[in-house]
């Protein structure tokens, strides 16, 4: 199999994730799109690991999965806090620091 077919798949997934982050207003959906981006990175890591025939790609992919779990936990806690304070999870309304 070509290395590029995996890399292009992951690039497409990454671009879709970026589209989701940019267009979604619902906080939970933004976090889901971030997961899509992290997943694209994981496919890249594992593909390069297989390409170079070592396990470093796999090891880093596992670390990324662990960090993603932590990120989702804290991110959703923040979304919940925002919902409690404002009764809304629309990220475009959070513009306190807008110049």
């Amino acid at each position: 199999m070509l290395l590029n077919q995996f890399l292009l798949l992951s690039a497409l997934l990454f671009a879709m994730g970026v589209y989701g982050v940019l267009t979604r207003r619902n906080g939970v959906l933004v976090l889901m799109s971030v997961e899509l981006i992290l997943n694209a990175v994981n496919i890249n890591l594992v593909a390069f690991g297989a390409f170079q025939d070592n396990v470093q790609g796999d090891v880093f992919a596992i670390f990324v999965i662990a960090v993603a779990a932590a990120e989702v936990g804290v991110g959703l806690a923040m979304v919940l806090l925002m919902y409690r304070n404002r009764r809304s999870i629309d990220f475009t309304e959070v513009d306190l620091m807008k110049g």
């Binding site: 995996f6 994981n42 496919i43 594992v46 593909a47 690991g49 297989a50 790609g57 796999d58 992919a61 596992i62 999965i65």
Partner: peptide, 9 residues
């Protein structure tokens, strides 16, 4: 991942 031989991941 499994297709790439990384079944653990």
């Amino acid at each position: 991942f499994i297709l790439l031989g990384s079944d653990f991941v």
